[in-house]
Amino acid sequence: MIIPEQPKIASFPKNSKVWVYQSDREFSLEEQGYISEKLNTFVSGWESHGRKLAGTFEIRFNRFIIIAVDESVSDASGCSIDKSVVIIREIAAHTGANLLDRSLVAIRNASSPIHIVKFNEVSAAVKQGIITQETLIYNNTITSLQELETNWEIPAKSSWVSRFFNN
């Protein structure tokens, strides 16, 4: 059976539900191929209580897996969301990448690649100048495509990290 390629996330309605899974490292080209194949198959058959979900995914910056569902077609239920997490766990096991650790913060400075700072080390990274007010912080707690476009990559001064600049 040939699985068709999924529509681009950008073609989905702005209120589409999204989940962002961040890797602790960049994926290789081979891993990206595996992830794309795995997620193509998954979203093509993704259902909620017997109703087909309109889902898609994207890999950004060789590090973030973003899954989206257009809930105007059908809502994602707890069980269908759990199934997506199972796929993410399988991808993590196959690649050896850490995809579910919410204590890792992805940051990027102007001309630097994205790198990871542990949550409990953010304050020290600010004091050392690793994180400045203009450093981009990846807000993986967003829940909609609209937020992905407007509130996912944000300057540290506009994020939760801002509290460390006053100390």
Rank of each mutant, 00 (worst) to 15 (best):
V20I: 03
V20M: 00
Y21V: 00
Q22W: 03
S23F: 07
D24Q: 02
R25E: 04
E26D: 13
E26N: 13
E26P: 12
F27T: 07
S28I: 09
S28K: 06
S28D: 01
E30Y: 12
E30W: 12
E30F: 14
E30H: 14
E31V: 03
Q32R: 15
G33P: 08
G33R: 13
G33K: 14
Y34D: 04
Y34L: 02
Y34F: 12
I35A: 09
S36L: 11
E37W: 10
E37I: 04
E37Q: 11
K38Q: 11
K38E: 08
K38I: 01
L39F: 08
T41R: 14
T41A: 15
T41L: 14
T41K: 15
S44T: 08
W46V: 04
E47L: 05
S48N: 12
H49S: 07
H49G: 10
G50D: 10
G50R: 11
G50C: 07
G50H: 11
R51C: 13
K52R: 09
K52C: 08
K52V: 03
K52N: 03
L53A: 01
A54V: 05
A54Q: 01
T56Y: 14
R60A: 10
R60Q: 10
R60W: 10
R63P: 06
F64K: 02
I65W: 03
I66S: 10
I66M: 01
I67E: 06
I67T: 10
I67D: 04
I67S: 03
A68S: 08
A68I: 10
V69A: 08
V69L: 08
V69E: 00
D70H: 07
D70T: 07
S72E: 11
V73Q: 11
V73G: 04
V73R: 11
V73T: 10
D75G: 13
D75A: 15
D75L: 15
D75V: 15
A76Y: 12
A76M: 15
S77R: 10
C79R: 13
S80R: 00
I81K: 09
D82H: 04
D82K: 10
S84Y: 08
S84Q: 03
S84P: 02
S84I: 04
V86S: 08
V86E: 12
I87N: 06
I87M: 02
R89F: 08
R89N: 15
E90A: 05
I91H: 02
I91P: 05
A92M: 02
H94E: 13
H94T: 11
T95E: 04
T95D: 07
G96A: 01
G96M: 09
A97L: 11
A97S: 02
N98M: 01
N98E: 05
S103N: 12
L104K: 13
L104P: 07
L104F: 00
V105C: 05
V105Q: 03
V105P: 01
A106P: 06
I107K: 09
R108K: 13
R108E: 12
R108I: 01
N109F: 00
S111T: 13
